[in-house]
């Protein structure tokens, strides 16, 4: 490799390093804003802004879903293991919305601590398995929250709580 090429190689590396550092700094400055949602613990601790539109995400607490018989109004609690928040919503819920599953709700957090959602999205994890396998895991661990596959979302939320 001759001197000219070596010089060009160094230039290319410098260019990459420079852009890399610039982007890293930018992402560091934006680190909170890039989060798609706040966790219930953050909301409970007052880390999340009230009165402005934001997203809250967590697992639907089993047994907390209360549906209105007359309308599409529904109320449920979401949890990340460290905190809980009540969500009110009116509309059609996604198919994947079940007790114990992960959700991300878009709306505003009131001063009363109730999250008024205008949109509810289902978050699923990266585990894929046939229903029989899932059933077998259920039978082996009867106490496990359902659906068991969502354990990763739960873990994710917990590590987020520990980390921040």
């Amino acid at each position: 490799m001759n001197a000219v090429r070596k010089q060009r190689l160094i230039l290319v590396l410098l260019l990459l390093a420079g852009v890399g550092v610039a982007v890293a700094l930018m992402l560091f400055a934006l680190r909170e804003n890039i989060n798609h949602y706040y966790s219930p613990a953050q909301m409970a601790a007052g880390d999340a802004p009230t009165g402005q539109r934001m997203r809250g995400g967590g697992l639907v607490v089993p047994g907390s879903v209360a549906r209105d018989t007359e309308s599409l109004k529904v109320s449920f609690r979401i949890s990340d293991g460290a905190g809980e928040v009540t969500v009110h919503y009116e509309g059609i819920l996604p198919d994947l919305f079940v007790e114990g599953s992960g959700v991300v709700a878009l709306g505003t957090l009131g001063s009363d601590g109730v999250f008024a959602a205008t949109e509810v999205l289902a978050k699923h994890d990266e585990n894929y398995m046939p229903p029989e396998v899932q059933k077998a895991i259920d039978d082996a661990h009867p106490g496990y929250p359902k659906p068991t596959g969502q354990a990763t979302v739960q873990r994710e939320l917990r590590s987020l709580q520990d980390g921040s």
Binding site: L27, R31, I34, N35, H36, Y37, Y38, S39, G57, V104, L121, K123, H124, D125, E126, N127, Y128, M129, P130, V133, T152, E156, L160
Partner: peptide, 24 residues
């Protein structure tokens, strides 16, 4: 991994076993 995203994490990982049943 860095942020709370709606998109789930990676199913195929270099260091860990893939979180998918073998027939899939």
């Amino acid at each position: 991994d860095w942020w709370n995203t709606l998109h789930q994490g990676a199913t195929l990982k270099l260091t860990e076993k893939p979180s998918m049943a073998p027939e899939m």
